[in-house]
Design a protein around this nucleic acid. Sequence first.
DNA 1: CGACGGCATGTGAACGTACACATGCCCGGC
DNA 2: GCCGGGCATGTGTACGTTCACATGCCGTCG
Lengths: 345, 345
Amino acid sequence: MEQATERTSGRRSPAPSIRDVARLAGVSHQTVSRVLNEHPSIRPETKQRVLDAISALDYRPNLAARALVTSRSNVIGVMSATIGEFGPASSIATIEEAARTEGYAVTTVNLPATTPEAIGVAVRQLVREQIAGIVVIAPQVRVFHVLRGMAIDVPFVSLQTASGATGESLAADQVEGARLATAHLIDLGHRDIVHLAGPQDWIEAESRMRGYLDALRDADLPTIAPVRGDWTADFGHFAGIELARRGDFTAVFAANDLMAIGLMHGFRDAGLDVPRDVSVVGFDDIPVAQHVWPPLTTVHQDFPELGRRAVELLLADIRGEEAPVFGPLEPQLRARASSAAPWRD
Amino acid sequence: MEQATERTSGRRSPAPSIRDVARLAGVSHQTVSRVLNEHPSIRPETKQRVLDAISALDYRPNLAARALVTSRSNVIGVMSATIGEFGPASSIATIEEAARTEGYAVTTVNLPATTPEAIGVAVRQLVREQIAGIVVIAPQVRVFHVLRGMAIDVPFVSLQTASGATGESLAADQVEGARLATAHLIDLGHRDIVHLAGPQDWIEAESRMRGYLDALRDADLPTIAPVRGDWTADFGHFAGIELARRGDFTAVFAANDLMAIGLMHGFRDAGLDVPRDVSVVGFDDIPVAQHVWPPLTTVHQDFPELGRRAVELLLADIRGEEAPVFGPLEPQLRARASSAAPWRD
DNA sequence: CGACGGCATGTGAACGTACACATGCCCGGC
DNA sequence: GCCGGGCATGTGTACGTTCACATGCCGTCG
């Protein structure tokens, strides 16, 4: 490795080009290009000579030149509204990893807002960088409409399934996960279950709401007006205090773990005990979920696998190959201490 | 905005180049280039004509071509070992935002390991993309040695302060934060305080350890052998159970919140009450810290500000400007319910 | 009053790659 | 034995930008 560092250090002379390699190998620059792009018609012996020259000079293709002539770079863009949060962040990490092993770099762009203008700006920034494709983690319904409306010629994939998906998005079965969570509460004996939902136009919020409603309907249980949250623990805390006043329920299904944890805090502040007085179930299974008190019952999502699949799907699209078919990512219920049978009075 | 989407949609003809703009404005391509690069010697009237042509054609400079000829792209690389975690993720989010408003794109690369080989691979990947600079969030001591050893000609900035920093890293005063946390426990009356430290070669782990030791020394208190963790809540849980057996302490200062939360869980499992039997203090102030039970006393870090400063520092270096001078980012103690006076028996 | 310097602009080339086309060769079929 | 075709390779050029150098003009100073 010392050799490797030696090689790249202090070298002020211009980096070797494809022609330098050609000269050393005694072939034309085009032959070198063919070797690099794995052209079939090339004699193994010639190929080897070129490869030797490449490693002798420590040659690396100039990506900018390649991007210029092909008008496409080996970069995929990740567009996300909430880069800082656990789900997106861990998906991005694996997207980055998967893309890089396939030879693609990853550039991220944060969506400051979900307005069509902001989305347009973000997409145009990415397109201007001549990225090969886009992974969208901004799960608002609008984003889809805007993207489709822009009719950009860049392939894109979304980590969330929109209703009426066109096959360009992935199925992490949110509806089923939410159904599982709610059914778990019903199985425990709860009949009055409130849903602490996510923001109005988020696809995930919608799916989880649907799963919740499906479960209630299947059990012929009454629907209680849901509370609209903003995904944050702070809101959960606030909602807990508010809900405690109402008291017309024995369990809450929160649309994500952060709100669920805040919610338990709010209940505690209001003098309610979880799970004796109220059961709480979350969604996502973030790393701390099992360590808070009481350990949070939640629905586990495989974010890394989601990221890997997104890259695979996107690259297939970019390369014009047939899209791989994935089974749905089955969410799993993790029953813990925050949910229990209701206390009968 | 409909116009904007209209403009970019369905356009199959090649994007306008600098020469198209020149033709429309009735000048040479070089004059257009001068306008783009804000060359001083240009008549305002000519400049205006060029600008009009640019907006008429909706011209955008081709970044690949620019990168090719200048052999430098407007991309900054972010190298991180733990992209998925809260601290790095929220720093990256603001780095991305700050960089983008300055006209730079951001590409991230994950460090799968902290070995010199892995670091070398990551750096070379970034250099190959001709990035303008690197922000390092991989806070292992080694990373610095490797980077310096490689003597790359790309400016880089680190989010962590190494001992003997060369001014190319930022001061988020970790030592002071840890000292505050420990002093808080001492002020409450604790005399036997264990440190649940981070992994051996992490700069942050080292700094927090030092702050802890400083506080003990200032108060003439005995040192207890620290426990080495891996930053995860799961390890914290394990450590809690193990430590409960020893019982030669009344408080623990954990090097991060995740471990602190796991630790409280472990203590609970072992039948200890926090804060009655043991006080716990964390570090980072992640969003759930105030909502867990008991709400976690911790040291607040301003990750977003850290990200912004990193970009500012890096861009100054890239542009050859003088480095801005920042005051140290003062960490703040957030005293909550997980710490209390020791229970005297 | 002529030369000279700075301003405003233009001309030509270069960056490093991939693509289109051209070339020479060998092999097999009629 | 000749010709067509595929294989292996070479030649030239385009991509869109910036840089180095050239040019024409005007004002100023000796």
